[in-house]
């Protein structure tokens, strides 16, 4: 297992946003996490990436206990994430946004920059090359000099994926990568996620668009009120009565999918 989560919990005051969640993420696969609004999906990601400290449970990544580790260390360990509401450095260009993702892999420090050491120059060259590769990979290379804030939503989502990929993750947490995109774009994002997995990066995906989830996921985990209520293949989940009751409701596809 790449990631093993045991009994993970997070309380906000009296509210159990995440409660006693067990989760195994096998390497090289797509694990989808679904559930109604407020089920605790984003909170779970925030716990895995170290943005929140769990109030109970453990997180093990590549055999190493990373429970409660701060984000700057989880990123170094190889966990990258994107946000549900796309975040980018608004007044920076697309390329600079992706370059920022290289900071964590850089070996040169501020003094190297001031004295313009060979290490700094090597680092800068390699960072730029890598950032451009990731932009090409997500199909946004032509936007490199545009201001991030001036891009349409769909392009911003691609750039934020390139930024996360630039940190060289082993595990990528994508929080609703297709939210607010049309069907055609959703399909393109599905393809992109497949290509990410083909590079050997394990993907965890939170998504309300059932067509995408059913298409991509090797494994689906269903959360409801912070608790895991089911785990299985897309076929198993589709026919699980508990899931149908809690989440899918009467409407089989797209159910519970708010905009």
């Amino acid at each position: 297992m790449l990631l093993e989560v045991r009994g993970l919990g997070k309380k906000f005051g009296g509210l159990d946003a995440v409660k006693g969640v067990d989760l195994d993420v096998p390497e090289g696969q797509v694990t989808a996490i679904i559930g109604p609004n407020g089920a605790g999906k984003s909170t779970l990601f925030n716990l895995l990436a170290g943005f929140y400290r769990p109030t109970s449970g453990t997180v093990t990544f590549e055999g190493k206990d990373i429970t409660g580790m701060k984000p700057h260390r989880t990123v170094r360990e190889g966990i990258a994430r994107t946000f549900q509401t796309t975040k980018l450095f608004d007044d920076a260009t697309v390329l600079d946004n992706v370059l920022a993702g290289r900071v964590v892999r850089s070996k040169s420090n501020a003094l190297d920059a001031v004295f313009h050491t060979p290490r700094h120059r090597r680092d800068e060259r390699a960072s730029k090359a890598r950032a451009m590769e990731e932009l090409e990979f997500v199909g946004a290379a032509h936007l490199r000099d545009r201001l991030a804030s001036k891009l349409p939503q769909e392009a911003q989502k691609r750039v934020s994926m390139a930024q996360a990929l630039a940190t060289e993750p082993r595990l990528l947490l994508l929080d609703e990568p297709a939210a607010g995109t049309n069907d055609e774009e959703t399909e393109a994002f599905g393809l992109l996620i497949r290509q990410i997995v083909a590079r050997g990066i394990t993907v965890c995906l939170v998504e309300h668009k059932m067509s995408m989830v059913m298409n991509l996921a090797d494994q689906i985990v269903v959360l409801d009120h912070g608790q895991r209520i089911a785990t299985g293949t897309p076929a198993q989940i589709k026919s699980d009565p508990l899931v149908i009751e809690a989440y899918l409701g009467a409407n089989t596809d797209q159910a519970g999918a708010p905009a």
Binding site: A49, V75, A100
Partner: peptide
């Protein structure tokens, strides 16, 4: 620009 985004790319804020 954004402390959260900075954290998410591994900046030790």
């Amino acid at each position: 620009t954004s402390e959260d985004l900075a954290k998410s790319i591994g900046v030790n804020v």
